[in-house]
Every structure is written in structure tokens, then in C-alpha cells.
């Protein structure tokens, strides 16, 4: 070959990225640690609470939550049964650890995802800038950002939460954006015509009417957070993901299966509860008969 049509940019990116990460570690280690400790504080509290509580109380809370969300006795009983089954698999402690990580991740994803979705709904330009970033967040392999994350925050739960948030936020942002854009324009116009401020329109009209879509987004975020537990366990987050990982490492198919079953059961429980809550929020649509 006479001329190389591929100038080596990869090398440059690689070394500058490494330099950048080194720079961050050198200069902002304290900041990252403070941030890490801040989140860890909540996570540890929640995890302790869940693990130290009597499983009966947790089962009761799951049952009540399911009933509050769905107003269906059978479904609530089913949810309690599913949680009980996780206990019978011998994975109760691990399930509580996983729930704690999942809940903290979902809260962070909600705090980031919903405002981003609202901003995207208000500006076409912002939406078209944000979209490729969301695509990137959903498709780039988690290990790519786990390497620097582990370097910045150390191994353990925080990089796991970070990975989960990056992976699980985009659907919430997209669904919030879509939900707000789909609110009947005439209703928004009515708000404007009566002199409502932008904030009053957002709070009183757009968010309430987009709530079913937002709930769907939170549901998706939870599901994706649960899908991340095995990867999260690879960098030291414990929980049911670790059970699967151990099964893989020890060539123990049975252990892999019970870990997998526990993840599926958790997913079912949280999916049904959030779905029912979302459905009940649009009850005004179903009351006509």
C-alpha cells in the first residue's frame, strides 16, 4: 500500500483519554471521594434498613405497596409470594442488597432524567442535541466507562450505581419528553389563555398529563437497573448479581439459575407495582362508561 488512508487517530484518543483520567484522579480525587461518600451514605443506610428488617415486615410492605398501586388483592398476594420465593432460594440478603442499589440508582436516574426530559420537550434544539447522547449512553458497553469509574471511585457500589444510572436514565428522559409533547396543545393553550405562568402550566397541566408516560419511564428505568446487576457485581457491588457471577466463575449452572430466577422475580415484582401505579394515574380516562 502506497498511501495509508487510515491515519492513526485511535492512538491519540487513547493516550489523551488516559491522560485525562489521570488528570482527574490527580486533581479531583477529593471531590470524587466526597461525592462517592455522599451517595454511599444513603445507600448504606437503605441497605442496612432493608437487611436488618424482619423479612415479614418487608413482605408486608411489598403487599401493601402492590395493593396501593393496583387495588387488586390477587396481584398483591402474588407479589408477596414472589418475594417469599426469593427467600426460599436462600437469596433474601442478596435481594435486599440489590433492591437498595436499584432504588438508589432509580432515584438518581429520576432526578437527572425527568428534568432532562422536560427540557427536551421544551426545545427542539436541545432535544436534537440530547438524542445522540442518549443513544450513546444506551449502546456503549458498560465496561467502557466502568474502567475509569472504578479508577475514580474505587471498586464497589458507587461505580456500579454510576453504570446503572448511565444505562437506565435514557428511557426515562425519552418517555418524559414524549409524554409532555403529547399533551393536547389546546389544553396547554387554555392554560396560557387564562394567564398561567410557564411553571404553572408545567406543574398543573403538562406533568400531570404526562405522568402515565413518566411512570412508564420509571418502570423502564427499574427494569434496566435490574438488568445491570450482574455487570455491577463484576466491579464489586454485591447482591443477586454476585450469585450469578459466582455461578459463572465456579462453573455452577445451578447457582447461576437461582441467581437468575431471583433477578427475574424482583423484576416482575417491581414491574407490576409501577405498572399498576401508572395505570391508576390515568384513571380519569377510564371512568366514562
Amino acid at each position: 500500500m502506497l498511501i495509508d488512508i487510515f491515519p492513526n487517530i485511535g492512538k491519540a484518543i487513547r493516550s489523551s483519554t488516559n491522560q485525562f483520567v489521570d488528570y482527574l484522579i490527580m486533581n479531583f480525587a477529593d471531590g470524587f471521594e466526597a461525592f462517592s461518600n455522599f451517595i454511599l451514605f444513603f445507600l448504606v443506610k437503605l441497605e442496612k434498613l432493608l437487611r436488618s428488617s424482619d423479612p415479614l415486615i418487608i413482605l408486608l410492605i411489598i403487599g401493601l405497596l402492590a395493593f396501593w398501586a393496583s387495588r387488586k388483592l390477587l396481584l398483591s398476594a402474588g407479589m408477596v409470594l414472589a418475594m417469599w420465593f426469593i427467600g426460599t432460594l436462600g437469596l433474601w440478603e442478596q435481594a435486599m442488597q440489590t433492591i437498595a442499589i436499584m432504588l438508589v440508582s432509580v432515584v438518581i436516574a429520576t432526578l437527572i432524567g425527568i428534568p432532562l426530559g422536560i427540557a427536551a420537550a421544551r426545545s427542539n434544539r436541545f432535544q436534537s442535541t440530547l438524542n445522540p447522547i442518549l443513544d450513546l449512553m444506551q449502546t456503549i458497553p458498560a465496561f467502557v466507562y466502568l474502567i475509569p469509574a472504578a479508577m475514580l471511585f474505587g471498586l464497589g457500589k458507587i461505580p456500579a450505581i454510576l453504570a446503572t444510572v448511565i444505562y437506565a436514565t435514557p428511557p426515562l428522559t425519552r418517555l418524559t419528553d414524549l409524554g409532555i409533547r403529547q399533551v393536547d396543545y389546546e389544553v396547554v393553550e387554555a392554560g396560557r389563555a387564562f394567564g398561567a405562568t410557564k411553571w404553572q402550566i408545567l406543574k398543573g397541566i403538562q406533568i400531570p398529563l404526562a405522568l402515565p408516560a413518566i411512570m412508564q419511564g420509571i418502570n423502564q428505568t427499574m427494569m434496566m437497573a435490574l438488568a445491570m446487576v450482574v455487570i455491577a457485581s463484576m466491579i464489586g457491588a454485591r447482591g443477586v448479581g454476585e450469585t450469578v457471577l459466582l455461578g459463572l466463575q465456579r462453573n455452577d449452572s445451578g447457582q447461576g439459575l437461582i441467581g437468575g430466577l431471583a433477578i427475574v422475580l424482583l423484576a416482575i415484582v417491581f414491574d407490576r407495582i409501577t405498572q399498576s401505579a401508572g395505570n391508576r394515574m390515568q384513571s380519569h380516562k377510564n371512568q366514562s362508561n
Binding site: 393536547d184 389546546e186 389544553v187 387554555a190 389563555a193 394567564g195 398561567a196 405562568t197 400531570p208 380519569h284
Partner: peptide, 22 residues
């Protein structure tokens, strides 16, 4: 001022009612 004007001076009725379903 425009918001105050819309609150006090004029109100509006819409073709497809523009009611808030929630």
C-alpha cells in the same frame, strides 16, 4: 403584565373545549 392581562381582562372558550382531563 401579559399574564395579569389574560387573568383579568379576557377569557377564552376553545373549539375542542380545552378542558383538563385530570
Amino acid at each position: 403584565e401579559l399574564e395579569a392581562f389574560r387573568r383579568k381582562k379576557m377569557s377564552m372558550v376553545f373549539q375542542r373545549f380545552g378542558l383538563m382531563p385530570h
